[in-house]
Simulated scan of single mutants.
Amino acid sequence: MADDQSRRTPADAPLLLDVMLGKLATYLRMCGYDAAYALDRGIEADDALADLADSEGRLLVTRDSELASRAGGLLIKSLDVTDQLHELANAGFALELSDPARCAECNAALVAVAAGAETPEYAPDTDEFRVWRCPDCGQHFWKGSHWESVEETLSEL
């Protein structure tokens, strides 16, 4: 990895998560992290992951100890996502929810939907809830019951 990447703190590093960490990527995105996921990029091979992390200046987060060592990445040992979150918290990651900032599906930066604007049938009325939209995949997000469940999980870390 380049020298500037090795000096980054978890709080400011864009991330690349390997194929074993898809659920963790969703949690990190909900916490506002730029958390690219290998399968979203169609990449599974270790060398390709290491090269992508290096070329995009991302911290590689992986469950593969050899890959973490070789690529200067962060090794996650746990299988359970709550335990993985504990590992990240212990590594200095701030794991708190704020307003939605990243798409949980594709990692793009979200944009606020104006009050009174139409939303898809699955999304709430913008006069009742703040709603955000992903400009890349079109998904809509709001702080609903899933948000509360994630907030509860994070509060127990």
Results as ranks from 00 to 15, higher is better:
residue 14 P to T: 05
residue 79 L to R: 15
residue 55 S to N: 07
residue 103 C to M: 14
residue 135 P to C: 03
residue 3 D to N: 10
residue 141 F to L: 13
residue 79 L to C: 06
residue 149 S to G: 15
residue 127 D to C: 00
residue 28 L to M: 04
residue 25 A to R: 04
residue 144 G to I: 12
residue 104 A to I: 11
residue 30 M to E: 03
residue 157 L to K: 03
residue 107 N to Q: 10
residue 90 N to Y: 01
residue 101 A to K: 12
residue 44 E to C: 05
residue 42 G to R: 03
residue 22 G to M: 04
residue 140 H to T: 14
residue 77 K to W: 12
residue 134 C to M: 05
residue 135 P to F: 07
residue 15 L to C: 05
residue 95 L to P: 02
residue 99 D to F: 02
residue 102 R to D: 01
residue 4 D to R: 06
residue 103 C to S: 10
residue 76 I to E: 03
residue 54 D to W: 03
residue 1 M to P: 10
residue 48 A to C: 00
residue 70 R to I: 04
residue 101 A to C: 05
residue 153 T to G: 03
residue 35 A to C: 04
residue 78 S to F: 06
residue 92 G to F: 05
residue 103 C to A: 09
residue 3 D to H: 14
residue 157 L to P: 00
residue 91 A to N: 12
residue 122 Y to L: 06
residue 120 P to L: 06
residue 28 L to P: 00
residue 154 L to W: 03
residue 79 L to G: 14
residue 140 H to M: 03
residue 42 G to H: 07
residue 145 S to M: 12
residue 125 D to Y: 03
residue 144 G to L: 09
residue 87 E to G: 01
residue 51 D to H: 08
residue 87 E to D: 10
residue 33 Y to K: 09
residue 47 D to H: 09
residue 109 A to L: 11
residue 157 L to T: 01
residue 144 G to P: 09
residue 7 R to G: 00
residue 47 D to A: 12
residue 25 A to G: 05
residue 157 L to M: 08
residue 85 L to H: 07
residue 64 D to A: 08
residue 30 M to A: 04
residue 10 P to H: 06
residue 152 E to A: 13
residue 106 C to R: 08
residue 121 E to P: 00
residue 142 W to V: 07
residue 94 A to I: 10
residue 103 C to F: 10
residue 55 S to Q: 15
residue 67 L to F: 07
residue 106 C to G: 13
residue 97 L to F: 03
residue 145 S to D: 06
residue 13 A to G: 00
residue 14 P to F: 10
residue 42 G to A: 00
residue 155 S to E: 14
residue 26 T to G: 01
residue 33 Y to W: 08
residue 156 E to M: 08
residue 14 P to S: 12
residue 44 E to D: 05
residue 155 S to P: 10
residue 87 E to W: 12
residue 6 S to P: 00
residue 107 N to E: 11
residue 36 A to R: 09
residue 56 E to Y: 08
residue 139 Q to C: 08
residue 97 L to C: 01
residue 40 D to C: 01
residue 86 H to N: 14
residue 94 A to E: 13
residue 81 V to D: 09
residue 35 A to P: 02
residue 84 Q to A: 06
residue 148 E to R: 15
residue 155 S to H: 09
residue 21 L to A: 05
residue 66 E to R: 15
residue 57 G to L: 04
residue 49 L to A: 02
residue 16 L to I: 12
residue 23 K to T: 01
residue 80 D to S: 06
residue 142 W to Q: 11
residue 124 P to C: 08
residue 35 A to F: 00
residue 25 A to I: 05
residue 11 A to P: 01
residue 123 A to C: 03
residue 101 A to W: 02
residue 91 A to Q: 14
residue 90 N to M: 11
residue 86 H to W: 04
residue 6 S to N: 00
residue 156 E to D: 09
residue 93 F to D: 02
residue 45 A to E: 15
residue 15 L to R: 07
residue 51 D to L: 04
residue 147 W to K: 05
residue 100 P to K: 04
residue 108 A to R: 02
residue 128 E to Y: 06
residue 10 P to W: 02
residue 39 L to P: 02
residue 2 A to V: 13
residue 54 D to S: 07
residue 154 L to Q: 04
residue 138 G to R: 11
residue 75 L to D: 13
residue 22 G to R: 07
residue 38 A to K: 06
residue 119 T to W: 06
residue 149 S to H: 15
residue 156 E to P: 01
residue 48 A to H: 04
residue 58 R to W: 12
residue 80 D to I: 09
